[in-house]
Design a protein around this nucleic acid. Structure first.
Lengths: 223, 223
DNA sequence: TGGCTCCTCCAATACTCTTTGGAATATCGT
DNA sequence: ACGATATTCCAAAGAGTATTGGAGGAGCCA
């Protein structure tokens, strides 16, 4: 094996990671896994994919070292292999949104104009949390809240928010967060809240961003 | 277009960037472009690829927003679209090398044991540069030196080093750098220098790493 | 204009990847 | 051991990608 062949072998290895990030389905799975570990079937349902396909994609991700799995009885739980993975996938997404006009348009088409909702930065929210003047709403599905959430946050899954507006205190500032910068739940929730007169803003970066900033996360005591 | 379709469209856009990073050939081109802008033919020769294929791969990279080009007379020069691109590609490579045993093995097979050569950090070199106690050797091809190099560095292309050992001062500490963390030139140069009794170490991260650290770069006055 | 060089485009081939449905496997509870 | 459930494995069809050689286009220089 000559030097050139060795170099190609090395770049071939690098490309394994790139390839893992090269499919919409896998990027979505990574975003879901960034919320916490989940079983194959659960992921398949959340991503609207067939179980067999989900399994195959998860194997691809695992082969590239992006996710790991453990077996618990009859089911297999996959998880992100480390925070760098969330960071890496996030960078790919941010890069696309920032540099590709078409991606920016797709983001706007899906999320609406998020900047207009004045997202709250992680540090700002952390500061205000200490002062206790803000209600933090976790609008992700309940299972994701249970897998880890911002200390003091209240779980109101996005599909229940409209029915539970009466529970919310008047006049308190509300910050809603969800799965990340490209998740609709929080922006939609904020728009709904504002339409009903609540002073609400989304958290920038969702729970994964909060985690990556090194801020504390509460995990529900295991049942 | 319903919400799910919009979401898929967004992830599809994200995947464009992943796809661009999914080929060994393209990752190598990005590493070459991280040294400075280059023409298609030049890149093709450096990567040992056919011009037509190089052109196609560059178009793929351009479509993903990773590189840009300009025409100068009969030739077209491609360049990295921004520092984030170098950072992104570097992260993919570092991730692979750190997390995939096979990639680590490929890196070791191509570069040898670089850690054993005790790479110098960027900050450390910058400090010692100010003190003037170190000879910095740029062992990349001359054209890359001309496109930008560490202030005060001397150009001694790797393939000329053996013949030019006599030019080097005795006793002075030498730091050699090249294209980056996965380039052979500097490690090979350091081994050669040490074999001839020179106290040499490689710079970690090569010129791209130096640039990303925000340290100064000298560009040769254009001819 | 004609000839030269560099690059892009095109068409064809050979791969590789994605996705699906169904069969096979593993584990659990009875 | 058996049935139920979750996951993986497999084969096949279809889509997409890589690579090549050669034709075509664009700019330069005489």
């Amino acid at each position: 094996m000559d030097e050139h062949a060795r170099k190609m072998a090395l770049y071939g290895q690098f490309a394994r990671v790139g390839k893992a990030l090269a499919s919409p389905a896998r990027l979505e799975l990574l975003d879901l896994l960034a919320q916490g570990e989940r079983s194959v079937e659960d992921l398949a349902a959340a991503a609207r994919m067939k179980t067999s396909n989900t399994s195959a994609q998860l194997h691809t991700l695992a082969a590239a070292g992006l996710v790991a799995s453990r077996r618990d009885g009859v089911r297999i739980y996959y998880r992100i292999a480390g925070h760098e993975v969330t960071a890496l996938a996030g960078r790919v997404q941010d890069f696309a949104a920032a540099r590709l006009a078409e991606a920016e348009r797709a983001a706007r088409g899906y999320l609406g104009d998020v900047a207009a909702l004045e997202p709250v930065g992680q540090d700002e929210l952390f500061r205000r949390l200490g002062e206790g003047q803000v209600l933090v709403l976790d609008v992700r599905p309940e299972a994701e809240y249970a897998a880890g959430h911002i200390p003091g946050a209240v779980s109101v899954p996005h599909d229940q928010l409209a029915a539970r507006l009466a529970e919310l205190p008047d006049g308190t500032d509300i910050v809603a967060y969800c799965r990340g910068r490209y998740c609709v739940f929080a922006p939609d929730a904020v728009r709904l809240l504002r339409a009903h007169g609540f002073p609400a803003r989304p958290l920038d970066g969702g729970l994964p961003g909060w985690r990556l900033a090194g801020l504390p996360v509460t995990v529900a005591a295991s049942a």
